[in-house]
């Protein structure tokens, strides 16, 4: 599969995406940092995924503060597909995945040489990750109970 050389999914960011709405910022950053470092430990790239994950956490805070009302957290505490619906969830996932992957591949190459290759990798990997995240969301889809 030639596509596989260019496209590497990073499904682990789903963990950061699915943390509850009302998580304190400190905890969110700490968890994102630790997640990244754990991935780094296995990829042997200390700091790379950690930095991308911290950026992801910041964008997550911005995105949620812009798009979600503060008072609606009680009955839907987590940003899942079943809670927020396909439109919101897919926008959320696509935006955050793009940001995370962009910085990930940028930091990985640390230069703008070979830019076309990086861009292709970035786009294809993002596509793959988004696809996997949406599939995962569908697998764990639960119908909302009407009160």
């Amino acid at each position: 599969m030639t596509l596989y050389n260019l496209s590497t999914p990073f499904l682990y960011i789903l963990f950061i995406l699915l943390l509850p709405f009302e998580i304190p910022n400190v905890l969110l950053f700490v968890l994102a940092f630790i997640t990244g470092l754990t991935i780094d430990a296995f990829y042997d790239t200390p700091g790379l995924h950690a930095s991308a994950c911290v950026i992801l956490a910041l964008v997550r805070i911005f995105f949620i503060s812009v798009t979600v009302q503060k008072d609606g957290f009680d009955n839907e505490p987590e940003p899942t597909l079943s809670n927020k619906g396909l439109r919101w969830f897919s926008t959320y996932v696509i935006t955050l995945t793009l940001v995370h992957h962009f910085f990930l591949f940028l930091f990985e190459s640390f230069s703008f040489s070979g830019l076309p290759y990086i861009v292709v990798r970035f786009l294809l990997s993002s596509l793959f990750t988004v696809f996997l995240i949406l599939i995962t969301g569908l697998i764990f889809f639960r119908k909302k109970e009407r009160k």
């Binding site: 700490v30 200390p46 930095s51 994950c53 950026i55 930091f107």
Partner: peptide, 28 residues
Amino acid sequence: YNAFFLFLIFEVTSLIIYVKNNSFQRAE
């Protein structure tokens, strides 16, 4: 703006780790 400052702290930390541990980036 605690989110931003926390972001700065963690981002700088991870980039320091990254640059210190990666010979290619260290060279640059």
